[in-house]
Simulated assay, not measured.
Amino acid sequence: MKIAFYGSSLVSSYWNGAATYYRGILGALAKLGHEVTFYEPDVLDRQKNRDIDPPDWCRSVVYDGTEAALRRAAAEVAEADVVVKTSGVGFMDDTLLEAVFAAASPGALRIWWDVDAPATLSEIEPQPDHPIRRALQRDVDLVLTYGGGPPVTQAYERLGPAPCVPIYNAVDPATHHPVAPDPRFDADLALLANRLPDREARIDDFFLSVAERLPDRRFLLGGAGWDDKAVADNVRLLGHVPTRDHNALNCTALAVLNVNRASMAQTGWSPATRIFEAAGAGACLITDAWPGIDMFLETGKEILVARDGRDMEEILSGLTRPRAAEIGQRALSRVLAEHTYEKRALELDAVLVERLAHLRETAA
Rank of each mutant, 00 (worst) to 15 (best):
L136F: 04
R158T: 00
P163Q: 02
L254T: 14
R195Q: 15
C251S: 09
F207A: 10
P126K: 10
C164I: 01
V305E: 06
P291V: 11
G7I: 00
A74N: 05
V82S: 01
A4T: 05
L144F: 02
T86H: 01
G280M: 06
C58D: 02
L136T: 01
L208A: 12
S12T: 10
A78E: 15
N258V: 02
V256L: 09
A104K: 06
L356K: 03
G7M: 03
E347R: 14
H339Q: 14
H176Q: 08
L238Q: 13
V256P: 08
L144R: 01
E157H: 00
G88E: 04
L44I: 10
K301R: 11
D64G: 15
S317W: 05
G147N: 03
E361I: 13
R236E: 12
A135H: 04
D233V: 07
P197R: 13
D53Y: 05
I327C: 07
R244P: 03
L32H: 06
D288A: 13
W112F: 10
G90M: 11
D205T: 12
L196S: 15
A135E: 10
I111L: 08
S87M: 05
F219R: 12
S122C: 13
I52E: 01
F207K: 05
R158K: 02
V62S: 07
S8K: 00
L332W: 05
D141H: 06
V353D: 05
K31G: 12
I275N: 03
S270E: 08
T175C: 13
R236W: 04
E347H: 15
A4H: 05
K343H: 08
G223R: 00
V36N: 00
R261V: 09
K48C: 08
N194T: 15
D93R: 04
I303D: 06
D308W: 01
A357F: 09
R213G: 15
E76Y: 04
T287H: 13
N258W: 02
D172S: 04
D233S: 13
L44W: 07
G27F: 00
I303W: 07
P178N: 09
N16L: 12
H34I: 07
A99D: 14
E361M: 11
A331K: 05
G300K: 13
P166A: 10
K229S: 11
L192V: 15
A201W: 07
S105L: 10
L29Q: 01
S13R: 13
M264C: 13
W226K: 00
A350Q: 11
G17W: 01
D64K: 11
R321T: 13
N169V: 00
R23C: 01
T175R: 14
D205I: 12
